[in-house]
Write a protein that binds this DNA or RNA. Sequence first.
DNA 1: TTATTAAGTTCCATTTTAGAACTATATTGA
DNA 2: TCAATATAGTTCTAAAATGGAACTTAATAA
Lengths: 160, 160
Amino acid sequence: MKWDNIQEMPCSVARALSIVGDRWTLLILRDCFMGTKRFDKFQKQIGLTRHRLTDRLNKLVEHEILRKVPYQEKPLRYEYRLTRKGVDLYPVLMTLVKWGDKWMAGEDGPPIEYFHTQCNHTMSIELSCSECGETINPKEVIPKVGPGLRAYSERLKSQS
Amino acid sequence: MKWDNIQEMPCSVARALSIVGDRWTLLILRDCFMGTKRFDKFQKQIGLTRHRLTDRLNKLVEHEILRKVPYQEKPLRYEYRLTRKGVDLYPVLMTLVKWGDKWMAGEDGPPIEYFHTQCNHTMSIELSCSECGETINPKEVIPKVGPGLRAYSERLKSQS
DNA sequence: TTATTAAGTTCCATTTTAGAACTATATTGA
DNA sequence: TCAATATAGTTCTAAAATGGAACTTAATAA
């Protein structure tokens, strides 16, 4: 199985990772959420090669997670901005932050803290249920076959 | 910058990704959350090469995200189970699910649905504030330098 | 006229990965 | 006894991805 094929799996994790699941893309997006918009700044902050960066930014633009917006003419230059689809990846980054803060920060404590302007507290994120609002415990969530997987299975059947 | 060095960045996202940020590891963990425990089953479900799988499982064990538990003697065989540290990655997977469901599922709808036994509803996850409980809007969260980054900066200064 | 800035591109050596076959240990059935 | 099956790897090689460094292009600043 080549990586390029995982997007065809009937699985939202696989499909999401087919775009953002490589070694650098989520770091690029982290920088986007911190306000970075320009090529050289990404390159310096992350330290990946310019070649790779070009490649990853193009892929993100292609998938409409970032879009290129001209910020000057002469010479024409673009900056990279998050789209709605890109901003929707915020929870993925924040869950990684929370895990990294808990398990990787060591004695120094979390590198970055997050201040919630709505309640004026330094906070961390929690996962809650869209229906009842309660905090999620993995054991209390049961995965079931959904319409997407059913459709996929039926297509497989009709092919054979 | 080589990938192996990103874990030294003063950033929880980078540190988390240094372990789970490669192309296959989060898919392996997805399977763990679906109940998969054995080598061959991982291999068939994910379709990565046995060689890579060995490598990734070992890395996860090394980082105490999975642990090997013998399930038979003669011949001695182990299965892979999530540790507490591993279970703590559940939010990362679920945020990827939510994004994939929204942006990658297309007309078929989500492949898998999630049933919350606490409230008896099919649900999706939301991000909420640990302090006030409200749903998080990225614009309302301000990152600030935390103790980990301060300690890091001071170490850098004293070295030079 | 030479540097500098910004955003890439090009080239090559190194590293990682995919794919397939092979190995080790034990059980089952003929 | 012998062949087939099951499980969990390991080994090998060709192909693909990556890292590092230098080069390019277009414009401004010294």
